[in-house]
């Protein structure tokens, strides 16, 4: 299909509009799937344009994107740009998902490093010194710089879209290998996410003679750090495979957390 003259469903202004709509990304942020709903809403109109009358295809694409995602709100536009270029060429949903899962973590890393860990402290230092002198330039400068950061979403969206379109031919010629490579990347990152996002801290300690043995530091951490997050994730995974619904899992997790907090078995 790449051989034929390819008719684009999206225009430049669609990409610009999508980049601005990424503002919705965190609208329903929650602890299970984090940004998923706002993320999907950011580019749902563009998906609709691509799928046209194919309601079933659109429904599948939307459902796919409601899975867990947590990335940086500025670099996000780049990711969606890439994804839209692939949707536009009707790349398989599996491939697009693989690419999404392997990109959102690194993009969050880049975005957090640039905006949260570098720009925010630097701007705080500069603008606070103005403000401490009673100079209104402090807040104004801060406002302008971060407004610029917001506008950055637009070129990032376009760059992602262009890069995705260019990469498409290489991707489509090697589709099986690309899928495998992307799955490997995505699974590596998921492993890292399990270790960094999930935290379980056992507060219980057992008196042994004169000393006290803390289950967390003296036992679990000695097996392997992050032992419990790993076990817990795969416990949930096994329940998911047994078709236990997410709602049930969430409610049980909430109740268990509060009960375990009350009895001081777990600590935040």
């Amino acid at each position: 299909m790449t051989k034929k003259a390819f008719e684009r469903a999206l225009t430049k202004s669609d990409i610009t509009r999508m980049s601005i709509r990424t503002l919705l990304n965190q609208a329903t942020f929650n602890f299970e799937r984090m940004q998923s709903i706002g993320f999907t809403a950011s580019f749902a109109p563009e998906l609709k344009k691509i799928y046209g009358d194919d309601t079933e295809g659109l429904a599948k694409a939307l459902s796919d994107n409601l899975e867990f995602i947590n990335t940086h709100n500025v670099t996000l536009a780049f990711l969606i740009g890439v994804m839209l270029s692939l949707y536009e060429k009707h790349e398989s949903l599996e491939t697009i998902r693989n690419i999404k899962v392997s990109l959102f973590g690194p993009l969050a890393g880049v975005g957090d490093a640039v905006f949260w860990f570098t720009l925010t402290p630097i701007m705080a230092g500069i603008c606070a010194s103005f403000a401490n002198d009673g100079n209104i330039l402090g807040p104004i400068l801060y406002f302008l710089v971060f407004f610029g950061c917001f506008l950055l979403r637009i070129p990032l969206g376009h760059i992602g879209y262009t890069m995705g379109t260019k990469a498409f031919d290489i991707v489509s010629k090697n589709i099986a290998r690309v899928n495998k490579a992307a799955s490997i990347l995505a699974c590596t990152i998921l492993g890292g996410l399990i270790a960094s996002y999930i935290s379980i801290n056992v507060a219980t300690s057992i008196p042994v003679g004169d000393s006290v043995v803390s289950l967390q530091t003296d036992f679990f951490d000695h097996i392997i750090p992050n032992f419990l997050p790993f076990v817990f994730t795969f416990f949930i995974y096994s329940l998911v495979r047994k078709k236990v619904s997410a709602t049930t899992l969430i409610l049980c997790t909430l109740v268990a957390s509060i009960v375990l907090a009350y009895f001081k078995v777990l600590a935040p």
């Binding site: 996002y197 997050p229 997410a246 969430i250």
Partner: peptide, 18 residues
């Protein structure tokens, strides 16, 4: 505590397909 546990459900859903 729940905030530290709930992402596991999101990850499990992703793992199921990937």
């Amino acid at each position: 505590i729940a905030g530290g546990l709930l992402p596991a459900i999101g990850f499990a859903m992703l793992l199921k397909v990937m």
